[in-house]
Structures are given as structure tokens and as C-alpha cells.
Amino acid sequence: MIEFFSYSCIVIGIIFWFWGTLPLIGKRSVLFKLHSLSVADTLGSMSIVFGLLLKIPSEWPLLLLAIITLAIWNTVLGYVLAYCSSGGGEQ
């Protein structure tokens, strides 16, 4: 049962990765790509790490720290990238 849950979490995370990364290739604005990247890199990766956590609970401190780091840093990074790319002009 737990095995099934962990695999489905990882597979959902990988689907998020693909869905959020594919718009990178298109010709949208930086901000629009940032939205889809936040789906892929923050939520998808959190889902993958959560799947790993269910699969191997013995390394829980490390994986929990990874989830916290991922949530905080990637979000702040999204803000910083949005701020810098909009304020600095897009030469």
C-alpha cells in the first residue's frame, strides 16, 4: 500500500516536471515561464521527495530538510528572478 503511494507520488512529480519544463522551449515571456517552472521545480520536486520519504522512512530528517529547503529557496528564487528580470530591462 505504502509502496503504491510512494510510486504514485514520484510519478506525479515527474509528470509535473515534464508539464512545467516543456513551456520553457516556447516563446512566452519570462514571467509566464516562471509560473510553469514554479509548478515543476517546487511542487513537482516536493512531490518526488515526499514519495522518497514514504519509500525509505529511515532517512526522514534529510528528506524533510530537503522539502523545507526546496519550498523556501525556490519560492524566494522565483521572486528574485521576477524582480530582476522585470526591473533591469530585457536587453
Binding site: S38, T42, L43, A71, T75, V76, Y79, A82
Partner: peptide
């Protein structure tokens, strides 16, 4: 700002 940016539909610019 963290909360607003965390949800995928919205990003704080400034």
C-alpha cells in the same frame, strides 16, 4: 511575499 509567490498562479514582482 513568500505565500503569494508559492502558489503557482501568482508571483510578486515588486
Amino acid at each position: 511575499i513568500f505565500l503569494i509567490t508559492f502558489t503557482p498562479k501568482t508571483i510578486v514582482l515588486k
